[in-house]
Design a protein around this nucleic acid. Structure first.
Ligand code: SF4
Ligand code: SF4
Lengths: 140, 140
DNA sequence: AGTAATAAGATGATATTTATCCTGTTTGTG
DNA sequence: CACAAACAGGATAAATATCATCTTATTACT
């Protein structure tokens, strides 16, 4: 019932990239250092983001990672889905899964609504907003 | 990002017990059979529920498991919390954890709201309501 | 050519999940 | 009291997921 570390790393990476001028690259070393993430593991994570089409990478000198989407058009929900696959609070909420007593199951409906509510919140703020002002936050 | 099987088993067990006349026992074999759950594993799960004060057990003939709470006073949120511990979408949402950049972290706030929204839905219907009528549900 | 950067595959250390087995303990019944 | 029924609890284990790290490419700029 928790995000994986990898999802968090991905979110913080996307946040870092969202703060860059559009089209600019940032290197994974830099991201790792700034966010204090394990560099090699971050590389793997970036590969996932790249395959999902959220970022693109360039090798060699002057290389690095940059967004292929506009910060205003993606949310934490998108990043988590990219890293962990489509979110499903329970197997019966995943595509293609079928539970025998699902039609009558009242638990199913509740879980479904809970998941929808969670996703709605995760999808409310875009990275553009997240990367914006850092102050005037509610602390806790 | 998913409930454990054990949580689901616990929910379905509580649901089964909620349908019993107040104060009555049901045996774990019966629950396991009716809900098609692995019996021994269910026993472990029941122990957790018992330690959390949601059910009480009696050994020996005529023994079994019964609720120690009123079905109208507990929700899925309570059961999941009992089995998995207090829900925290991310380590920084758990009690006592401290992340260095938490005060300024805007991700934290979003995760917190997402979690709150999810818990609100999970806490909306009590087991009394869940155990009530089985029909007139939205199927998908 | 050389260097800086990501890609990709293999491997592994841990932790969690999902059980099962065996033995103990409690309790009602005859 | 002996027995059987039912849960309790500890040990064990298989499967899977998580969180990496190591090594060897491959790509691209200079
Ligand atoms: S019993 Fe209900 S909640 Fe559980 S898997 Fe089946 S449909 Fe989903
Ligand atoms: S970086 Fe933000 S979201 Fe991540 S653990 Fe720290 S406070 Fe929580």
């Amino acid at each position: 019932m928790q995000l994986t570390r990898q999802s968090e790393y991905a979110i913080r990476t996307m946040l870092e990239l969202s703060m860059l001028p559009e089209g600019e690259f940032m290197q994974s070393r830099t991201i790792a250092a700034r966010q204090e993430l394990p560099e090699q593991f971050l590389n793997k994570t970036v590969q996932i983001l790249a395959r999902s089409g959220l970022v693109e990478t360039r090798r060699g000198m002057q290389g690095g990672i940059r967004l292929t989407v506009k910060p205003g058009e993606i949310t934490i929900a998108d990043v988590v889905a990219a890293v962990e696959g489509k979110i499903a609070l329970n197997p019966c909420l995943a595509d293609g899964y079928h539970c025998a007593n699902q039609p009558a199951c009242r638990v199913h409906g509740i879980l479904k609504r809970a998941q929808a509510a969670m996703l709605a919140e995760l999808g409310k703020e875009t990275f553009a907003e997240l990367a914006g002002e850092d102050e005037n936050r509610i602390t806790s």
